[in-house]
Design a protein around this nucleic acid. Structure first.
Lengths: 154, 154
DNA sequence: ATGTTCCTGCGTCCAGCTCGCATCTGGCCG
DNA sequence: CGGCCAGATGCGAGCTGGACGCAGGAACAT
């Protein structure tokens, strides 16, 4: 989708819900659309303030909350540290490498089999939308195995 | 293992590593041993202070860190909120219900198949020791489905 | 143009740790 | 048994990530 179309689409949702279109909100949305990857609220605030220095941190948090209530964005916790935000369409899960910080996006259906397994065996409905699965990417796992040769942990 | 044996076992590990056995440390360990379930640092601090009011929060955090370095305990993040601590032997994973807070312990091998699947398909080595898998228990999932009948989310 | 929501900046506050520092103490040594 | 000193502790301040209440300001319907 073209950036401008996406902006207008979200603004339409916002208006339809009784929300108002303000200049900070446009700027925040724009930062979210332009950002490649998984921005934190802090990064978005910085991007916004580069153009509109008076926009306050708490405005960013509040608007992100509202966008989440509207189903437009989701937040994800990538292990420790701040949450990151992304648009909620094309839902996906996240794998995050604890070594290098690499974030891998995984289509929902890739983990559907596992969710079914846990549902059947443990009567538990996993919900991975808001929490990444932590671990090590191939490279980091290999370098750790090398470092741990003869180490303590099994 | 009898509580007293467990205490002495850990104290032995501590001494072997060059650490000292102090009265706050005994009290913290005792609280950890006596606690049923998954205590937070705050709960442990409260338990310890019931008997030794001068023991400081930061002492508890520092000792838990050291026990973790020694491989005696592990911390787990159950979603939002503070970390919880448990002994590291008999390693297991955690499922945590976002509805009622129920924590289910899952033997490591129960998820081994899934770890293998992710390793093979995504070249990613999942490490679930320090993060619980969030979701809904059977009861909470059912009550949410009822509430959501005709709702918005897929 | 006007009014009424809703939004915003600002400051303050919160949880959950983390750190620096001066003091104290466990446990080895003589 | 007494002294010594690294390691442990109490205390307070600081930090990150985020929540909140308020008074003033702006958006949108009328």
């Amino acid at each position: 989708m073209a950036p401008v179309d996406r902006l207008e689409q979200v603004l339409a949702v916002l208006r339809a819900s009784g929300g108002r279109v303000t200049s900070p909100r446009r700027a925040i949305l724009w930062a979210l659309i332009e950002h490649q990857g998984h921005p934190t609220a802090e990064q978005l605030t910085a991007d916004v303030q580069a153009r509109q220095p008076d926009v306050h941190e708490s405005t960013v948090y509040r608007f992100l909350d509202e966008l989440e209530r509207l189903g437009v964005v989701d937040h994800v916790h990538l292990g420790h540290g701040p949450a990151v935000y992304h648009f909620a369409d094309d839902p996906h899960h996240h794998l995050v490498c604890e070594g290098c910080g690499l974030v891998v996006e995984v289509p929902v259906r890739t983990l559907e089999e596992f969710r079914g397994l846990v549902r059947r065996d443990l009567q538990f409905e996993m919900e991975l939308r808001h929490f990444a699965l932590p671990g090590r990417c191939k490279a980091c796992a290999a370098s750790r195995r090398a470092a741990n040769a003869g180490g303590l942990r099994p």
